[in-house]
Protein backbone atom coordinates (compact mmCIF):
# COMPACT_ATOMS: atom_id res chain seq x y z
CA UNK A 1 0.00 0.00 0.00
CA UNK A 2 1.53 3.25 -1.04
CA UNK A 3 1.34 6.53 0.80
CA UNK A 4 -0.68 8.10 -1.97
CA UNK A 5 -3.35 5.46 -1.60
CA UNK A 6 -3.43 6.21 2.10
CA UNK A 7 -4.20 9.84 1.62
CA UNK A 8 -6.91 9.27 -0.87
CA UNK A 9 -5.57 11.02 -3.95
CA UNK A 10 -2.68 10.74 -6.33
CA UNK A 11 0.38 12.85 -5.73
CA UNK A 12 0.35 16.22 -7.48
CA UNK A 13 3.56 15.51 -9.36
CA UNK A 14 2.97 11.82 -10.01
CA UNK A 15 6.19 10.83 -8.28
CA UNK A 16 6.60 8.92 -5.07
CA UNK A 17 6.89 10.73 -1.77
CA UNK A 18 9.79 8.66 -0.52
CA UNK A 19 11.91 9.25 -3.61
CA UNK A 20 11.27 12.97 -3.58
CA UNK A 21 12.10 12.98 0.12
CA UNK A 22 15.34 11.10 -0.54
CA UNK A 23 16.52 13.54 -3.19
CA UNK A 24 15.59 16.46 -0.95
CA UNK A 25 17.68 14.90 1.80
CA UNK A 26 20.62 14.40 -0.56
CA UNK A 27 20.40 18.07 -1.58
CA UNK A 28 20.73 18.91 2.10
CA UNK A 29 23.66 16.50 2.54
CA UNK A 30 25.56 18.49 -0.10
CA UNK A 31 25.80 21.35 2.38
CA UNK A 32 26.90 19.03 5.19
CA UNK A 33 29.80 17.55 3.25
CA UNK A 34 30.47 20.92 1.63
CA UNK A 35 31.09 22.36 5.08
CA UNK A 36 33.36 19.51 6.12
CA UNK A 37 35.32 19.62 2.87
CA UNK A 38 35.70 23.41 3.10
CA UNK A 39 36.96 23.12 6.65
CA UNK A 40 39.54 20.58 5.49
CA UNK A 41 40.56 22.73 2.52
CA UNK A 42 41.05 25.71 4.81
CA UNK A 43 43.18 23.77 7.28
CA UNK A 44 44.93 21.16 5.12
CA UNK A 45 48.30 22.89 5.06
CA UNK A 46 48.31 24.02 8.68
CA UNK A 47 50.67 21.68 10.41
CA UNK A 48 52.46 22.92 13.50
CA UNK A 49 53.59 19.48 14.57
CA UNK A 50 53.35 15.95 13.27
CA UNK A 51 53.42 14.80 9.65
CA UNK A 52 52.30 16.80 6.63
CA UNK A 53 49.77 15.27 4.19
CA UNK A 54 52.33 14.41 1.52
CA UNK A 55 54.46 12.54 4.08
CA UNK A 56 51.80 10.02 5.04
CA UNK A 57 49.34 9.64 2.16
CA UNK A 58 49.69 6.26 0.50
CA UNK A 59 48.27 7.03 -2.94
CA UNK A 60 48.38 3.48 -4.38
CA UNK A 61 46.57 2.09 -1.36
CA UNK A 62 43.87 4.79 -1.35
CA UNK A 63 43.50 4.46 -5.14
CA UNK A 64 42.65 0.80 -4.73
CA UNK A 65 40.08 1.44 -2.01
CA UNK A 66 38.59 4.28 -4.05
CA UNK A 67 38.31 1.88 -6.96
CA UNK A 68 36.58 -0.65 -4.71
CA UNK A 69 34.02 1.93 -3.62
CA UNK A 70 33.48 3.01 -7.21
CA UNK A 71 32.81 -0.57 -8.27
CA UNK A 72 30.37 -0.99 -5.39
CA UNK A 73 28.28 1.65 -7.15
CA UNK A 74 28.16 -0.63 -10.18
CA UNK A 75 27.04 -3.61 -8.13
CA UNK A 76 24.47 -1.41 -6.38
CA UNK A 77 22.98 -0.28 -9.65
CA UNK A 78 22.85 -3.92 -10.80
CA UNK A 79 20.94 -4.74 -7.60
CA UNK A 80 18.44 -1.97 -8.29
CA UNK A 81 18.07 -3.16 -11.87
CA UNK A 82 17.47 -6.74 -10.71
CA UNK A 83 14.95 -5.56 -8.12
CA UNK A 84 13.00 -3.70 -10.80
CA UNK A 85 12.89 -6.89 -12.86
CA UNK A 86 11.71 -8.77 -9.77
CA UNK A 87 14.74 -11.10 -9.82
CA UNK A 88 14.95 -11.75 -6.10
CA UNK A 89 18.01 -13.96 -6.04
CA UNK A 90 20.05 -11.59 -8.18
CA UNK A 91 18.93 -8.64 -6.09
CA UNK A 92 20.13 -10.34 -2.93
CA UNK A 93 23.38 -11.37 -4.57
CA UNK A 94 24.26 -7.88 -5.78
CA UNK A 95 23.21 -6.28 -2.51
CA UNK A 96 25.52 -8.66 -0.66
CA UNK A 97 28.40 -7.95 -3.03
CA UNK A 98 27.84 -4.21 -2.61
CA UNK A 99 27.91 -4.53 1.16
CA UNK A 100 31.11 -6.59 0.96
CA UNK A 101 32.80 -4.02 -1.26
CA UNK A 102 31.68 -1.29 1.12
CA UNK A 103 33.06 -3.25 4.04
CA UNK A 104 36.35 -3.61 2.19
CA UNK A 105 36.47 0.14 1.79
CA UNK A 106 35.74 0.75 5.48
CA UNK A 107 38.31 -1.88 6.40
CA UNK A 108 40.82 -0.04 4.25
CA UNK A 109 39.96 3.17 6.01
CA UNK A 110 40.47 1.61 9.42
CA UNK A 111 43.84 0.29 8.24
CA UNK A 112 44.75 3.73 6.86
CA UNK A 113 43.77 5.51 10.07
CA UNK A 114 45.83 3.07 12.12
CA UNK A 115 48.83 3.54 9.86
CA UNK A 116 48.54 7.33 10.00
CA UNK A 117 48.21 7.21 13.76
CA UNK A 118 51.34 5.09 14.02
CA UNK A 119 53.16 7.60 11.84
CA UNK A 120 52.32 10.33 14.34
CA UNK A 121 49.09 11.86 13.05
CA UNK A 122 46.58 11.87 15.92
CA UNK A 123 43.22 13.59 16.05
CA UNK A 124 44.73 16.37 18.18
CA UNK A 125 48.13 16.55 16.51
CA UNK A 126 47.42 19.39 14.14
CA UNK A 127 44.64 21.18 12.32
CA UNK A 128 45.36 18.91 9.38
CA UNK A 129 44.83 15.87 11.62
CA UNK A 130 41.59 17.14 13.16
CA UNK A 131 40.03 18.17 9.88
CA UNK A 132 41.27 15.10 7.96
CA UNK A 133 39.90 12.59 10.45
CA UNK A 134 36.65 14.53 10.81
CA UNK A 135 36.00 14.65 7.07
CA UNK A 136 36.98 11.09 6.20
CA UNK A 137 35.46 9.81 9.44
CA UNK A 138 32.09 11.37 8.58
CA UNK A 139 32.28 9.72 5.19
CA UNK A 140 33.23 6.41 6.76
CA UNK A 141 30.23 6.59 9.10
CA UNK A 142 27.98 7.21 6.11
CA UNK A 143 29.41 4.14 4.36
CA UNK A 144 28.96 2.06 7.53
CA UNK A 145 25.33 3.13 7.84
CA UNK A 146 24.91 2.15 4.19
CA UNK A 147 26.39 -1.29 4.86
CA UNK A 148 24.03 -1.82 7.79
CA UNK A 149 21.08 -0.86 5.61
CA UNK A 150 22.20 -3.17 2.81
CA UNK A 151 22.71 -6.14 5.12
CA UNK A 152 19.39 -5.50 6.85
CA UNK A 153 17.71 -5.40 3.48
CA UNK A 154 19.21 -8.76 2.51
CA UNK A 155 18.11 -10.24 5.82
CA UNK A 156 14.62 -8.84 5.53
CA UNK A 157 14.25 -10.00 1.93
CA UNK A 158 15.08 -13.53 3.03
CA UNK A 159 11.98 -13.39 5.21
CA UNK A 160 10.17 -11.52 2.43
CA UNK A 161 8.48 -9.06 4.72
CA UNK A 162 8.98 -5.67 3.22
CA UNK A 163 6.33 -3.04 3.67
CA UNK A 164 5.87 -0.98 0.55
CA UNK A 165 7.32 -1.60 -2.86
CA UNK A 166 10.43 -3.74 -2.65
CA UNK A 167 12.15 -2.32 -5.72
CA UNK A 168 11.62 1.20 -4.45
CA UNK A 169 13.26 0.41 -1.12
CA UNK A 170 16.30 -0.99 -2.97
CA UNK A 171 16.34 2.07 -5.19
CA UNK A 172 16.30 4.46 -2.19
CA UNK A 173 19.21 2.73 -0.52
CA UNK A 174 20.89 2.78 -3.91
CA UNK A 175 20.54 6.56 -4.13
CA UNK A 176 22.09 6.90 -0.69
CA UNK A 177 24.91 4.55 -1.61
CA UNK A 178 25.74 6.37 -4.83
CA UNK A 179 25.71 9.67 -2.99
CA UNK A 180 28.27 8.38 -0.54
CA UNK A 181 30.31 7.27 -3.54
CA UNK A 182 30.23 10.68 -5.25
CA UNK A 183 31.28 12.34 -2.02
CA UNK A 184 34.31 10.08 -2.04
CA UNK A 185 35.02 11.00 -5.67
CA UNK A 186 35.39 14.59 -4.48
CA UNK A 187 37.33 13.72 -1.33
CA UNK A 188 39.72 11.51 -3.26
CA UNK A 189 40.62 14.31 -5.65
CA UNK A 190 40.65 17.26 -3.26
CA UNK A 191 42.22 15.55 -0.27
CA UNK A 192 44.53 12.92 -1.72
CA UNK A 193 45.47 13.89 -5.27
CA UNK A 194 45.90 17.67 -5.03
CA UNK A 195 49.04 18.36 -3.01
CA UNK A 196 49.11 21.20 -0.49
Amino acid sequence: MTDTAVHGHDSSTGISNIKLGMWTFLGSECLLFGGLISTYMLYRGRVTGGPRPAQIFDIPFTSVSSFVLLMSSLTMVLAVSAAHKNEHRKTNLWLTVTALLGATFVGGQVYEFTAFYNEGLGFSTSLFGSSFYTLTGFHGVHVTVGIIMLMSLVGIFKRSAVPGKKAEVVEMIGLYWHFVDIVWIIIFTLVYLIPV
Binding site: T13, G14, I15, K19, L20, W23, T24, L26, G27, S28, E29, C30, L31, F33, G34, G35, I37, S38
Partner: peptide, 19 residues
Protein backbone atom coordinates in the same frame (compact mmCIF):
# COMPACT_ATOMS: atom_id res chain seq x y z
CA UNK B 1 11.62 13.55 -13.16
CA UNK B 2 13.15 17.02 -13.36
CA UNK B 3 12.06 17.82 -9.79
CA UNK B 4 14.70 15.43 -8.47
CA UNK B 5 17.39 17.25 -10.44
CA UNK B 6 16.08 20.54 -9.14
CA UNK B 7 16.26 19.40 -5.51
CA UNK B 8 19.71 17.90 -5.78
CA UNK B 9 21.42 20.47 -7.96
CA UNK B 10 19.89 23.32 -5.95
CA UNK B 11 21.67 21.95 -2.89
CA UNK B 12 24.85 21.23 -4.82
CA UNK B 13 25.10 24.60 -6.52
CA UNK B 14 24.23 26.43 -3.33
CA UNK B 15 26.89 24.47 -1.47
CA UNK B 16 29.54 25.18 -4.12
CA UNK B 17 28.62 28.87 -4.29
CA UNK B 18 28.41 29.52 -0.57
CA UNK B 19 31.51 27.57 0.38
Amino acid sequence: NKIFSLMFYAGLILAVGVY
